[in-house]
């Protein structure tokens, strides 16, 4: 049965945008206010899930042509790699460093390796959640 989905699709476009923005915001603000890589990744994943629900797998994958397993693996590599990097600086494994920079426009900005670590976490979460849901859904 053909189902008219205009309302849903229209709204979803806006909603997905809001969600993605929020996801990035959460990811970046994690160090100082609630949020962080994990939650950011989850929110991003839920945006993707919403897309999958509203549209269908093939359509979405055509728009986002990536292998989510590899995304996940890459994220893990990033997270572990950040940790591993400390070995080369002869500091204990997993030592995070942070520094403050004065950047134009942004003012005093904190740059920290935690952010890279968290980015890895976020990617893993996105990759894994989407992989799981897609794996089941594709298997009919």
């Amino acid at each position: 049965m053909k189902i008219n989905n205009v309302i849903l699709r229209t709204v979803s476009k806006v909603v997905v945008f809001i969600i993605l923005t929020l996801a990035i915001y959460l990811f970046l603000s994690g160090h100082h206010s609630p949020g962080g890589g994990f939650i950011g990744g989850l929110v991003m994943a839920s945006a993707l899930v919403l897309l999958f629900i509203v549209y269908d797998i093939e359509t979405v994958q055509k728009a986002i042509p990536v292998d989510f397993k590899k995304i996940a693996a890459f994220g893990a590599l990033l997270a572990v790699g950040t940790a591993f990097g400390s070995i080369f600086f002869d500091v204990p494994f997993l030592t995070q460093s942070f520094a403050y920079f004065d950047l134009p426009f942004f003012g005093k900005t904190e740059l920290t390796t935690v952010t890279i670590f968290e980015a890895g976490v976020a990617l893993v979460v996105v990759g894994v959640v989407v992989t799981i849901i897609l794996s089941i859904s594709e298997d009919v």
Binding site: V43, L50, D56, I133
Partner: peptide
């Protein structure tokens, strides 16, 4: 987030009720 998710889960449920499957391979 709660608002967003309430929305997502409602959509998921309604699709489940309507079609049985919530994510389709191909429309």
């Amino acid at each position: 987030i709660l608002a967003i998710l309430a929305f997502i889960s409602t959509i998921a449920f309604s699709k489940y009720i309507e079609r049985g499957v919530i994510i389709e391979r191909k429309r």
